[in-house]
Design a protein around this nucleic acid. Structure first.
Lengths: 386, 386
DNA sequence: TTGTAGGCGTTATCAG
DNA sequence: CTGATAACGCCTACAA
């Protein structure tokens, strides 16, 4: 009696087996009667229809071979006829695999995150994976909670610009494959673009245009990405013999950019690089609102080349960071890791480049005429109201 | 022997029960020895440590009550000590619930999708759900495949601007709760903003500024959203006694907007509404590149108010559609449906409004001076290179 | 090649 | 309130 019900089912299968296979061709309509309505067909149903044992169905459908061609075909026909789809939980319970990977981005609110999401999402679809998404709102605890929740249900995890400790990341990575974007963590595969190249180009261009002192507007001071970029800026400036000062913003957003405008003016620089485009947007708005002309009086160079960078006035010069590539690259890497097909090359090389637009250019001390100044004020006001 | 192993395990629990509870306090270190390293603790382990039956652990931990306070505390201590986390697959296998819901957006590439994703994502996190995301690349088959894949692993599904048939949607909805965004489907809960209000405001503003003939640039002709918006435009124009012509774009993107510029000029209108902001961006660029002045010679009104709409020159007048609200509203609705706590109000009312910026205004036949024309050409060229 | 007999970790339904 | 036990659907030694 212990396995009574199971036995009954199997017997049932045995009985129907002949009835069905006798006809050989199996009209879909008759199949539905076996399991009409609600719950999905199981391998037991398929086995019943195909007249074989459930385990044979499992073998046939999980492509592990070891099934005769005839049986295979029979089972496949029955499966499609019943519209059978293996229950992923039952499978996961046994195999631990879900065909799902997670992506946690630092800020679900930033357009920069979106590019990463897109890259990872497209790759997921292409590789027949499901993408689980979460944002950490730039909070370490939220991020950890999200990561842990995900770890239970995914095959692997991508952390984009994470704010948690290196050790936390490594702990996660011990459990399941983890790929980090935009940050280097020892012992964990990372996809981080080579930002020095783009920054070098930017600084060189500024130097060539006669600038001698530039400011770097950092994001949150503890952000590894911001730190990395600032160091690269310093190095490039040193090489090009430019003075570089660092200004901290309250937040790495458009508003943060607006707020840092005063500091920028006070610093007396003729050019400013920002740690991301959002900051540049806000900074440029505020500077223009104050009557300054970009790039005549001050050059602005952003970072990332997010959507919209080409639409500002003037269009924003920026260091393009191929974030979509980062997303898809990380996803590809993770999936390869998962399938044991990781290329020897490992982490793909992703390179940044300067996108020269209108917001940066030659130093010119040209003062604005009163009329022009007035016009700019009006424009700025309009823009602010927008 | 049939259930031999089970019996052994249970006996094992019984044996250890005394040994452990004798000490009362249970040092974490000693617990680890029970299940060190790899695989996670199970309710059997917890039961063993707490000295109770696994089913009691299940009851205690799934908050279904019916457990004495003392036992509850004992079990919780054991669980945290062992760092126990219920295996979601095993749970799902039995309950069918995963605390995950799916979101399928029409186009992972569009900034408009992002707002929806953000809204849904934030709501998911807040309600302790995992969000599974997929894009359909505006393809019916891709969308259906994604939907089916998801259906197997989620508790419910949100379809944002889906392109599949109403019937397909209803079929999905028979299986699990489905909420549709941006489209009305009979018998399925839908979150669709009231676009007529915003459009009415836009048309009225155009009429008040002396325009008499406007064009509407549609997205893909079969897109329900585009159709709905065109109908609303027609209705409003009729009311305001404006002529309205419809122009079709190849694709609802910036490029599509550029390509439709010629048709717009040929149509001889003085104002144009586009089915989304992307189209407006491209259209404005192209028109300006051809030397036209916005809004002096032509007014442009977009739709959605996506990120970046405030950064163009002139800033884009647009009908704001609160897409993030749609995303969070749909998620909230879905989750409430899932928990049987759906409000009687049902679908939240979401309303659009005109955001008046610089790209629309009074009709003026003012011709450009040659110098001004030249300047605009240069600016447009710069913008294009950007 | 195919069938048998568990087991994966939980929940739910019974008895007690 | 607690314990025993049968599902849930699939996978996989092992046996035949």
């Amino acid at each position: 009696m212990v396995l009574g019900q199971d036995t009954i089912v199997v017997n049932g299968a045995g009985q129907r087996q002949n009835a069905v296979t006798a006809g050989q061709s199996v009209p879909a309509a008759s199949m539905n009667s076996a399991r009409n309505g609600k719950s999905n067909a199981t391998i037991y149903d398929v086995a019943m229809v195909a007249g074989v044992n459930p385990s044979t169905v499992s073998r046939a459908l999980s492509k592990s071979g070891r099934v005769s061609a005839r049986t295979q075909k029979l089972i496949e026909a029955a499966a499609t006829g019943l519209n059978f789809h293996a229950n992923p939980f039952a499978r996961a319970l046994h195999t631990g695999r879900t065909n799902t990977f997670g992506l946690i981005v630092a800020d679900l609110t930033s357009p920069a995150s979106f590019d990463i999401i897109r890259g990872a999402g497209i790759t997921a679809t292409v590789r027949n994976y499901t993408l689980a998404l979460a944002g950490s709102a730039d909070s370490t605890v939220t991020e950890l909670i999200a990561a842990r929740r995900m770890m239970a249900t995914v095959d692997g995890l991508i952390l984009a610009s994470p704010c948690m400790d290196d050790d936390d990341i490594r702990t996660l990575a011990r459990d399941k494959p983890v790929v980090v974007i935009n940050r280097e963590v020892d012992g964990v595969p990372c996809v981080v673009p080579d930002e020095s190249k783009g920054i070098r180009e930017a600084v060189r261009s500024l130097a060539a245009n006669g600038h001698t002192k530039v400011a770097f507007v950092a994001g949150p001071p503890q952000s590894p990405m911001s730190i990395r970029r600032w160091e690269a800026v310093q190095a490039s400036c040193e090489f090009s013999r430019l003075d570089a000062v660092r200004l901290d913003s309250s937040r790495p957003t458009v508003d943060g950019g607006r707020q840092v405008a005063q500091d920028v003016r006070a610093s007396g620089v003729t050019a400013v690089l920002t740690s991301n485009d959002l900051l540049a947007f806000g900074l440029m708005q505020e500077l223009q609102a104050a009557g300054m002309v970009v790039p005549d009086e001050i050059s602005i160079v952003g970072f990332d080349d997010i959507f919209g960078a080409g639409f500002t006035t003037p269009p924003l010069t920026t260091v393009r960071s191929p974030r979509e590539e980062c997303g898809s690259g990380a996803a590809t890497l993770l999936l390869d890791l998962l399938h044991g097909t990781a290329l020897s090359s490992g982490v793909p090389t992703i390179v940044t480049e300067l996108v020269q637009r209108g917001s940066s250019g030659r130093v010119s001390a040209r003062k604005m005429s009163p009329a022009r100044c007035r016009r700019h004020e009006i424009e700025a006001e309009l823009r602010r109201r927008a």
